[in-house]
Structure formats: C-alpha cells, structure tokens
Simulated assay, not measured.
Amino acid sequence: MNIALIGYGKMGKAIEQVALQRGHQVILRIGRQNREEFSRENLVMADVAIEFTSPESAPDNVLHCLDAGVPVICGSTGWNDRLYLAKEKCAVSNGAFLQASNFSIGVNIFFEINKQLASLMNDWPEYEVSIEETHHTAKKDAPSGTAITLAEQVIDNLERKKHWQLDAPSGEEVLPIKALREDEVPGTHRVHYRSAIDDIEIAHTAHSREGFALGAVLAAEFIRHRKGIFTMSDVLAGNAR
C-alpha cells in the first residue's frame, strides 16, 4: 500500500516506522517545509492519506485529499465544529473518510469500558464523576479529543450529566474535565467516580506513540478499498488483528 503522510512530525514519523514494518511504502511526506508538494498530482499516487497536523490545518487538508479521490485517515483533534464539512464532502464525492480522537487499540477498548461503566452508574447517584487527561506540553488542544470522547460517552450513558466543561467544579449536570500538560507524556486519561464511601477509577496510560501509530496504519489498511464514513469501532470489528 502506498501511503501519503500529511504531517511529518513525531507522530508522522512513528506512523512511517510502523507502516514500513507492515510492508507498506510511504511515497509522500508533507511537513511545514514542503507544503508546495501537497498537490493533487502527488496525492493521487497514494492509496491512502494519513493526516496528523493541527486543528487549524486539518479541515483543509482532509478536504484536499477527498477532492483528489484519496481515502483519508485523520488523527488531528480540536476541529469537531468543522467535522461536518469533511463528512459532507466524503458523501458527495463517494469517498472514504475516518476520523478518530484516538487510534490506539487500547484506548478504543477503554472507550467501550467507559460506556459500560457509565451505564452501570445510572443507579448510583451518590457517585460524582470527573475526567482528567495529561499530555505533552506541545499538544495544542485542551481538553484532548480523547477526553472529549470519554465525556460524550459518559453523557450519553449517565442520565444525570448533560454537558462537560473544562476546569469546572462538579455540578448536578456538569461533567468537569481537567487538562494537565507535562513534558514527554504521550497521554494519560482517567475517569473517576467518587463517593463518600469509596472511589472507582478507570485509566489508560500510553507508554509511547507506537500504539497510536499502529492504530492509524490499521485504519488505513481497513479503509483502502472501502467507501463511506468510518470510525475506529469499524476497524476493530473488521481487522483488529
């Protein structure tokens, strides 16, 4: 499989390493220094594009890939308010698009546990819930896309919570999220239920970027010959191994 990497920072280089290990080729690497090479002519040589840049660049990058008829995987977070543009373009162009707040297989299993736990806690209102995430200092968005996904899952499954808020005190309907930034932390997420009697906590801690990179390559393998809009749940169901 020929892959175009849109974003060639630490994450892009980690994806490249995993892709090569799995027998793929990276034929295009787009970074800040060579944006002029991000052309339709170069893109169409790729079977799949994998985009990891910034919330400011991601929407246009994804649309450009879809315009070129190239299936695109996007791991950039912080642009949920414009995600509909990519989905509309994908539908109109009969393309393929997959965006995820986190590509790690472990995190996506963690998501399923989070939903189940939130549902179980519906009968126990004495437990107050909060979310905490810690990332490296270079991360541009806060809270992380993964933390937002966790919060949305809790809200969907725990009737007493209606909306999340960053750095908010606990409230009857508010789910607070705390975002911490520390050097060289790939990503840690905790969902904490606290009562006067005891605490329940689930957590996921990434040790490196390799898990995110592997998930992105698995997603690229999954989407290559498909049309439509997909999630990591589709990838796990289709070819997690």
Score class of each variant (00 low, 15 high):
S54G: 09
E182C: 06
L117M: 15
G145L: 12
G145C: 12
I50Y: 05
M11N: 03
S101L: 10
V174A: 03
H189C: 07
A138I: 15
R22N: 11
G69I: 13
W124A: 12
K139H: 15
A58K: 08
W79F: 15
M1Q: 06
E56D: 14
G187F: 03
D81I: 09
I223N: 07
E184D: 15
A91W: 05
H189Q: 08
C65M: 01
W79L: 02
S195Y: 06
R190L: 13
A14Q: 01
S104I: 00
N102L: 08
Q153L: 14
I177G: 05
S233W: 00
K10A: 07
P55C: 10
V235C: 00
L166D: 08
S170W: 09
Q21E: 15
E221K: 00
S54R: 09
E51R: 02
V44P: 04
G9L: 00
T149N: 14
I131W: 05
G215F: 01
F110Q: 10
E173H: 12
V26C: 03
H136L: 03
A147P: 12
K227E: 14
I155C: 08
L150P: 02
A46E: 02
I229S: 09
E133F: 05
L98V: 04
A19F: 07
I27C: 07
N94I: 01
A46T: 06
R35N: 01
E152S: 00
S54I: 00
Q99L: 06
V129Q: 04
P71Q: 05
D60R: 13
